[in-house]
Design a binder for these strands. Sequence first.
RNA 1: GGUCCGGUAGCUCAGCUGGAUAGAGCAACAGCCUUCUAAGCUGUGGGUCUCGGGUUCGAAUCCCGACCGGAUCACCA
Length: 592
Amino acid sequence: MTLEQQISTLAKEAVKALYGIEAADAQIQLQKTRPEFEGNITLVVFPFVKAARKAPAQVAAEIGEKLMADGSGLIARFNAVQGFLNLVIDDGFWVKQLQAIDADANYGRLPNRDQLMMVEYSSPNTNKPLHLGHVRNNLLGFSIAQIQEANGWQVVKTNIVNDRGIHICKSMLAWLKFGNGETPESSGKKGDHLIGDYYVRFDKEYKKQIAELMADGKDEETAKREAPLMLEAQEMLRRWEANDPEVRDLWTKMNNWVYAGFDETYRRMGVSFDKIYYESNTYLEGKSEVEKGLASGQFYRREDGSVWADLTKDGLDEKLLLRSDGTSVYMTQDIGTAKLRFQDYPIDKMVYVVGNEQEYHFKVLSILLDRLGFPFGKELVHFSYGMVELPNGKMKSREGTVVDADDLMDKMVADAREISKDKVNTLQGITPQEADEIARKVGLGALKYFILKVDPRKNMLFNPAESIDFNGNTGPFIQYTYARIQSVLRKADTANLSPLASSLDPKELALIQRLCEYPSVVRTAGDDFSPAVICNYAYSLACDFNSFYHDLSILNEPDAQKKALRLLLSANVAKVLKSAFALLGIEMPERM
RNA sequence: GGUCCGGUAGCUCAGCUGGAUAGAGCAACAGCCUUCUAAGCUGUGGGUCUCGGGUUCGAAUCCCGACCGGAUCACCA
């Protein structure tokens, strides 16, 4: 039973005995005592003032006396300030908490709930490399998966790769026309970047043709429609749909280049998937699902042959599901993907990590899946996150303001390495490989924390002109705290510790109390789908430790019992920091 | 125009299921390394929580209205 639960029970009994009222759970308001007052936990007594018909301070004092009498030593003393009853919990309680935390190797992990959650994230197009927006998506998706796993879900991480469509045809066409057989091997370029270059090349040549046609007197719309390159790309898409072997072979070859590039980026980012779906395999399933819905009267066909869902009863519009030429749209594909997933896994909850610009799409998808009989449809979660903006607004590939994922990671690791150069004292005697590892972990830690600490729902700003910090409320600050503890532990003889001290310094107590919060933080992060909650907690814990570390000596503490307690405390702070960072997908360096 | 989301220090962000004097970091300034890692610690300055109403013992937090910013409302994905 947690401290809150114990106090809550005691408080209810006290209020009943004193004032004869049955307090509801919502009326028992407990909060952490503010640092300017003495105490660990505070009961807000305003809810009982009316029934007591006494001044708030007097009510607080009366409840305090009662809790002292009934609490069997749990509460050492109390003070009442207005309607706030500040309770000082006995040191012995905290020491026992620390021992319990130490004994639990999986501290923070909540009981299994035997239910399966599928988390879809990343979901790239195969025509260009990953950029900063994808980075936010991938980091959030991976972290959410870790957090939900810690909340007891069985989690399947999945990715739906948008591998077909006009966009990839554009890259293919440009490569055929202008590529001279260039390959990742021959050019030394990562496959995704190579394909991205040809996508840009297509756009450039296409614009040139439009300009030429307009110079010949065509209006812009006509020029766009009649540009030979566009006609060729569309023809290529038709050949792809018709399974033309030549087009299919090229498509396979070029997509594989992209996948090799993506895999490298994913590996570097530290994200992974349990199951990958490809749109080229799911869109036909979607069509057949729509046909079924049509047969059962869920959907209807218009005169031109297009198929629609009428969502006006749900307060939405009518939504196109199949074009008049019978081809599928985005929604059709997501329906097909959902069907395959449901065949493959007993999904209890489906989570889509997709930007907030697609909220309407997922609102519609939820309704459609529900109508088609998917049990998770109605309750699907669109984990809708905000955009990453630059000082001048959104990233635009046309304006060359896209922040490339690989470049950004390179820069972060290089910055970390640069900073490490000054650390000759702490990093002496390490091999170049170890130095590389530290720079990698710290650089990526800075990037990941920078992104994950922001409330996912909000748009966030990235300024390429300013480098991401390594000081203050950052990933490296927390990694540093961890490395510092490891350094102390390496020097300590932890083999046979003496019994623990039974009284606590305030800094020790604050740290233990903070450690006790961890499981509820994990729960909140899971309920709210918020890695930022974990970031905030890890930061607070690191701050508390650094304050403790600054004020109190660990290894040089003469009192063996105090030393033992501080070592145990330090080890468990490190354990929780590492655990919290694992939920964020951030690795801890043993030294830095 | 309809719907949704946001507006907190110069900047980037916490805090939002109502609680005590609204917090961090960055930037600026001033201190602390012969002592467990100074990527650290301590201090100073910095606020009309966009504005106006309402609800109540109490509002940055909840409700209503305005203003500002963003997203979305395709036979694109």
